[in-house]
Design a protein around this nucleic acid. Structure first.
Lengths: 240, 240
DNA sequence: AGAATAGTGTCTATGAGACAGTATGAG
DNA sequence: CTCATACTGTCTCATAGACACTATTCT
């Protein structure tokens, strides 16, 4: 079996993770504070280099576990690759970005080589704003991670429309109001509670009731767990 | 400025292209016949290694031009990356796949190191079929290109729903019937001509009439060119 | 009782799909 | 004229959105 020619240039390949969750009615992203130059003490997405013999997905799961302790039973999907020659000042790095969705976790325990991990509200990072070079230059995130975050958030927003992914933001069981809050936080809009209720409960396979109620301020609410369906048709559409 | 540590493993990075077009009422993909081992004389997607200082997008455009002569004025977007350790028997290669859509071109002139380039109907390649290991083993395409092709076709199918991308399959001007044929070939379904006509012509920014008619067998048809819109809302949905 | 939230009824507007019907060319 | 295809009219059904209303708990 022939080998790859030596003259083919080799590149460092990293995975970067956009880990999203909802905390206190805000869409948040997991960020680590860099402990080294470049971008010392700036926030960055968790990630690391792909090891020998390790698939890209495996690298993403490993990094997720190492830097957050998350067991990756939640949603994890590949986002896109970023390979601009100058994107890392230390040398050329091709980065494969992943999107992970997680329920609200108590803390993000910093492990690995990350100085400190924290959930940051994405609206503070300008992720929903345009591509203004202004923002990118003084952007809160290191490298091109602002761009990656924006792409991840946009993917999540889009997928809430036509998949049942919103349940990945919820715990094992949840009320319809909590699920609605997911949509409202991710999309940054308000939804009509009555119409949302009908839509979700009548969409085959989206949610299944469990035999428990959640007691709160008003009338107790039926609890649900995620159903078997992954696609939602017809979708729930955002206001244009 | 610190450099990347030497111990970080480096990988060969390639781009692979899923170039789709419509030919004689069939969705076709550009394939080259391999001139070397491994997979000698098997069909494969066009592609090649990313060069030093070259962005991923630039590499994709270059390969597209080299192997097909296509000037890449048409649609080109990144699909996904594939990095299973064993996907290339010559050694580890991380491949960034791109999706390109092109109008029906007279021939695919083989250039570069491709032995021979050809448009192959995707339905002959089992791209619309499931993941059966049977098919993948004796699959028509080299490496994991069958999988990449399937992902590309699925992306194209999905994007026809909610974008105006279908016009990328057409020439500079086209009739509504030709545009409908694009949908029918890509989706493998029949659409109601009358409803499709209304839908497309009333969707702001999808198509713009030009001052010419196309004469054929029946009543001459108004010619259109692509409009300014890229998103389609409400979308055109496939039958489930 | 009153506040608060869960869940239901119902009306309206929009749009998809079915399909009949009309328009305009070629032979 | 006939045939073929382009385009229009119109009916029906499903569903989103608005919003009034009822249900069930807590204080």
């Amino acid at each position: 079996m022939p080998k790859l020619p030596k003259k083919v240039t080799r590149y460092a390949v990293a995975v970067d993770l956009v880990v999203l969750t909802i905390r206190e009615e805000h869409l948040c992203v997991l960020a680590i504070q860099r402990a080294e130059a470049p971008f010392l003490r700036r926030w960055a997405l968790p990630g690391g280099f792909v090891r020998e013999g390790e698939s890209l997905d495996a690298a993403a799961r490993r990094e997720l576990a190492e830097e957050t302790g998350i067991d990756a039973t939640f949603h994890l999907e590949q986002l896109q690759s970023y390979g601009e020659p100058k994107r890392d000042p230390r040398g050329r790095v091709i980065s494969v970005a992943y999107l992970a969705l997680s329920p609200s976790l108590p803390v993000a325990s910093a492990g690995g080589d990350a100085a400190m991990a924290e959930w940051l509200p994405v609206d503070l990072l300008g992720a929903s704003l345009g591509d203004s070079p202004e923002l990118l230059r003084k952007g809160a995130l290191a490298f091109d991670h602002g761009r990656i975050l924006r792409d991840g958030v946009e993917r999540a927003r889009a997928k809430l429309e036509y998949t049942t992914l919103a349940t990945a933001f919820c715990g094992a069981t949840f009320t319809i109001a909590e699920l609605r809050e997911v949509y409202e936080c991710v999309w940054g809009t308000k939804l009509d509670a009555a119409n949302f209720y009908r839509k979700v409960t009548r969409s085959a396979g989206f949610v299944e009731p469990v035999s428990e109620l959640k007691h709160g301020e008003g009338r107790p609410a039926q609890l649900y767990r995620g159903g078997k369906a992954t696609l939602l048709s017809p979708p729930i559409v955002r206001a244009s």
